[in-house]
Computed example of a mutant assay.
Amino acid sequence: MEREYSVNFGQYNTWSDWHLTPAERPIVVPPTEKTHNIDLPGGSGVIDAAQALTGYPVFNMREGSWDFYVENDIEPFMTIYSKVMAALQGKRLRVSLEEDAAYFYEGRCWVDNPKQSNGHTMLTINYSFNPYKHKFADIGKVVKTAVNGSATIFSGSVSNYTGEPICPKLGIELSSGNTMSIEFTTSSRRYTTSLAKGTWVDPIIMLIPGETTSIVAKGYGTVSLQAIGGWL
């Protein structure tokens, strides 16, 4: 049970490395939606300015805490306390739950003052994570497309992701010419830009879940596309 409901902080596991037993089943709290309601004197209801700016919902950080009992008969408490502090304080980490180990959250963690509960010493680990979790398997996943005049490097929808808009990373390699033309098209807009050799992230080229999109490259060379989406 201890390993099944443990938490991985980077390379460390709460049970295998520190012998911490969760007081309750560890769950990462859901993010709350960011809203900024504007009451219009001359109209009915309110306008949510947050979605009006983006066209899709945006979220606050996931913030919460976990309580762990310290197994004092394995290592001295101060030894465990120092190990946990050294691993967490002041670091930005990828954190995963053992029972959901294919996904990770990213953010900061820190330790509260130890406390006593039912005759046991307890450590509280606080966290502040980005709203979306990501798949370990998606890290480093890149699709390369050869462009000999014109080629479609993305076409379709990212509806299989459950919410996170994706701003893809484009890598440009040129075999001829100084730039590669990138045409980004959705049902409501069309945008064209020229990119030189290198790695680029253009905030206008945004893949919105459920929205049909195409990205066409024109020129000569290779375009690599990395688009990592997230889940709530």
Results as ranks from 00 to 15, higher is better:
residue 1 M to E: 13
residue 2 E to W: 08
residue 2 E to A: 12
residue 2 E to R: 07
residue 6 S to A: 12
residue 8 N to L: 10
residue 13 N to T: 02
residue 17 D to A: 04
residue 21 T to Y: 07
residue 21 T to N: 07
residue 22 P to V: 09
residue 22 P to R: 06
residue 24 E to T: 14
residue 25 R to M: 15
residue 25 R to T: 14
residue 26 P to K: 03
residue 27 I to S: 14
residue 27 I to M: 14
residue 28 V to K: 05
residue 29 V to A: 15
residue 32 T to P: 00
residue 35 T to P: 11
residue 37 N to I: 01
residue 39 D to S: 13
residue 40 L to H: 09
residue 41 P to C: 08
residue 41 P to D: 04
residue 44 S to M: 15
residue 45 G to M: 06
residue 45 G to I: 02
residue 46 V to C: 06
residue 47 I to G: 00
residue 48 D to P: 09
residue 50 A to V: 12
residue 52 A to I: 02
residue 52 A to T: 09
residue 53 L to M: 14
residue 60 N to D: 13
residue 63 E to D: 11
residue 66 W to V: 01
residue 68 F to Q: 03
residue 75 E to I: 04
residue 79 T to F: 13
residue 80 I to W: 00
residue 81 Y to P: 03
residue 83 K to H: 07
residue 86 A to I: 08
residue 89 Q to W: 12
residue 89 Q to H: 14
residue 90 G to I: 15
residue 90 G to Y: 10
residue 91 K to E: 11
residue 92 R to V: 10
residue 94 R to M: 11
residue 95 V to A: 09
residue 95 V to M: 10
residue 96 S to K: 03
residue 98 E to I: 10
residue 98 E to T: 15
residue 100 D to W: 09
residue 100 D to S: 12
residue 103 Y to D: 01
residue 104 F to I: 13
residue 104 F to A: 12
residue 105 Y to P: 04
residue 108 R to T: 08
residue 112 D to Y: 04
residue 112 D to C: 14
residue 112 D to A: 15
residue 114 P to I: 01
residue 116 Q to A: 09
residue 116 Q to P: 01
residue 116 Q to W: 08
residue 118 N to P: 00
residue 120 H to W: 13
residue 121 T to E: 06
residue 125 I to C: 03
residue 126 N to A: 09
residue 128 S to L: 07
residue 129 F to Y: 08
residue 130 N to S: 14
residue 130 N to D: 15
residue 132 Y to M: 01
residue 136 F to W: 12
residue 137 A to M: 11
residue 137 A to N: 10
residue 139 I to N: 12
residue 140 G to S: 09
residue 141 K to H: 14
residue 143 V to P: 00
residue 144 K to L: 06
residue 145 T to Q: 11
residue 146 A to V: 13
residue 146 A to R: 12
residue 147 V to M: 06
residue 147 V to G: 03
residue 148 N to A: 09
residue 149 G to N: 06
residue 151 A to I: 06
residue 151 A to L: 06
residue 151 A to E: 01
residue 152 T to S: 11
residue 154 F to R: 02
residue 154 F to S: 01
residue 159 S to H: 07
residue 159 S to Y: 05
residue 161 Y to S: 01
residue 162 T to W: 08
residue 163 G to T: 04
residue 166 I to F: 06
residue 166 I to G: 06
residue 167 C to W: 02
residue 167 C to F: 07
residue 168 P to C: 12
residue 170 L to R: 04
residue 170 L to S: 06
residue 171 G to N: 11
residue 172 I to G: 02
residue 172 I to D: 08
residue 173 E to A: 05
residue 176 S to I: 02
residue 183 E to Q: 05
residue 186 T to R: 10
residue 186 T to S: 14
residue 187 S to N: 14
residue 191 Y to C: 09
residue 192 T to C: 00
residue 193 T to N: 08
residue 193 T to H: 04
residue 195 L to D: 02
residue 196 A to Q: 14
residue 196 A to W: 07
residue 197 K to F: 09
residue 197 K to Q: 14
residue 198 G to D: 09
residue 202 D to Y: 04
residue 203 P to F: 11
residue 204 I to S: 12
residue 205 I to V: 15
residue 205 I to A: 03
residue 206 M to N: 05
residue 208 I to E: 01
residue 209 P to R: 02
residue 213 T to S: 15
residue 214 S to G: 06
residue 215 I to L: 09
residue 216 V to K: 13
residue 221 G to V: 04
residue 222 T to H: 04
residue 225 L to I: 08
residue 225 L to Q: 03
residue 230 G to Y: 02
residue 232 L to K: 15
